[in-house]
Design a protein around this nucleic acid. Structure first.
Length: 424
RNA sequence: GGCGGGUUGCCCGAGCGGCCAAUGGGAGGGGACUGUAAAUCCCCCGGCUCUGCCUUCGAAGGUUCAAAUCCUUCACCCGCCA
């Protein structure tokens, strides 16, 4: 069972580095193993980048192991220097508390906390870090760390070369090591997973466990997601793709996945999909045979949107997507379908009694463009559409005749940026 | 603490008294091609009540008909010396 887990992860390209592979395999095979991953609250929500690691966690749970989802209420206050070339700005304590709560809620969607066989549990490192005094920390934990070794870590040494590091962030690895020690002692947690940039921090924990408890545990890192064109995974023009529906709408989330490059879709399927291997291989085949159909992208988008936002939302969003991009006439959609499709888009409402503003004003009001100048530019450059029909002239204004079902207008900028107007 | 160098539009980076909303590259946007892809090509890329006006070149003052460009003070960054 678990032998398969590692082989499967390997096939999916989800293993960057592990300690003692044989030993890990043996431990995983002998009994359900407690393992943990930490998420620091550095934003109000998790984003698709975090999803890589979260789903690996899910895979471990599905294989029968016991996940501990750790939220970094303490470490989030300090700031991890890994993978950063400059100091983080500290966030306010009350803000971090809120973020911890958000992240906790999001994580609970991906793991099973109810299972009576191997339920997941939550932890917050603030619980055991806060009570420790600075003196205790320095004497009981700090004493086991060699500054020489700490300086040698990538996260620190690269920062020493690029402008320096504060004592606060320098101490981060000690805090994370302390977490691992705590979970090892308390729950016999013997495996920590993390992104490959976490290797140094995880290993610091292993050292601490060995020195303090004479015990041994494992480290397992997951490659950081990279896109084939070198750009950063999980970012769009609008910024990060968040898991929070208020920050990235389910529609935008779906669009993110469906717009996956052909060159990346194989990798994404392997990393994100829970379909079995033969199905994934079939989908990869379709990319080679009939790339234009984009079946793989569609399946990927559907699976991930369902997972993150629920299958109900996913269906709505898919319907919206089809209606708005499909070859069908907008007018042919029944009012209900159209309304739910439009509900997914940026929207502006105007009063029945008012005169219609210009297309330019409407688009600017939806927030799809940043300024009226930008909206004018779109018209000038021939990228302005009303109800999927091209319009021209900067002072073009819709009329009553353009309303669909007597109340809707669909604005489009370029090929795929849509917004809606409702008259009430 | 002393001396020197720097701070320019989303990012990098030219400009060093008028021809500057400011060269160039990247990112981003529109168009063509296609598949709501990639690559390529063309165009755009501070704002507005848009043949003009307004606000930008670390901050605040000043010199000048005219300043991103000169002067003064302040803040931050980077070197060298202590």
């Amino acid at each position: 069972m678990t032998t398969q887990l590692l082989a499967d992860l390997e096939w999916r390209g989800l293993i960057a580095q592990t300690t003692d592979r044989e030993g890990l395999l043996k431990d995983l095979n002998s009994k359900p193993l407690k393992f943990y991953i930490g998420f620091d609250p550095t934003a109000p929500s998790l984003h698709v980048g975090n999803l890589v690691v979260i789903l690996v966690m899910r895979r471990f749970q599905l294989a029968g192991h016991l996940p501990i989802a750790l939220v970094g209420g303490a470490t989030g206050l300090v700031g991890d220097p890994s993978g950063r070339n400059e100091e983080r700005t500290l966030n306010d304590e009350t803000v971090v508390v809120q973020w911890v709560e958000n992240i906790r809620k999001q994580l609970s969607k991906f793991l099973d906390f109810e299972s009576n066989k191997n339920p997941a549990v939550m932890a917050n490192n603030l619980d055991w870090t806060k009570p420790v005094s600075a003196l205790e920390f320095l004497r009981d934990i700090g004493k086991h760390f060699s500054v020489n070794q700490m300086l040698a870590k990538d996260s620190v040494s690269s920062r020493l070369e690029s402008g320096g590091i504060s004592y606060t962030e320098f101490s981060y690895q000690v805090l994370q090591a302390f977490d691992y020690l705590e979970l090892y002692r308390r729950d016999n947690c013997r495996l920590q997973l993390g992104g490959s940039d976490q290797w140094g921090n995880i290993v610091a924990g292993l050292d601490l466990i060995r020195k303090v408890e004479g015990g041994s545990a494992h480290a397992f890192t997951i490659p950081l997601m990279a896109k084939s064109d070198g750009s950063k995974f999980g970012k769009t023009a609008g910024g990060s793709v968040w898991l929070d529906a208020d920050m990235t709408s389910p529609y935008a989330f779906y669009q993110f996945w469906i717009n996956t490059d052909d060159a990346d879709v194989e990798k994404y399927l392997k990393v994100f999909s829970f379909k079995d291997r033969s199905e994934i291989e079939r989908l990869i085949e379709t990319v080679a045979v009939n790339p234009g159909a984009r079946e793989a992208q569609r399946e990927l988008a559907r699976e991930l949107t369902s997972l993150v936002h629920g299958s109900d939302q996913c269906e709505k969003v898919e319907a919206a997507s089809k209606a708005l991009f499909g070859q069908g006439e907008l007018k042919d959609l029944d009012e209900k379908t159209l309304a739910s499709a439009l509900a997914q888009l940026p929207k502006v409402t105007i009063d029945k009694s008012e005169a219609f503003p210009t297309w330019v004003d409407l688009l600017a009001a939806t927030g799809v463009v940043e300024s009226k100048s930008a909206a004018r530019r779109i018209v000038k450059e021939n990228g302005a559409y009303l109800n999927n029909e091209k319009i021209s002239g900067e002072d073009f204004a819709p009329t009553k005749e353009n309303l669909i079902h007597g109340k809707f207008l669909v604005l489009r900028k370029g090929k795929r940026d849509l917004a809606s107007v409702e008259v009430i």
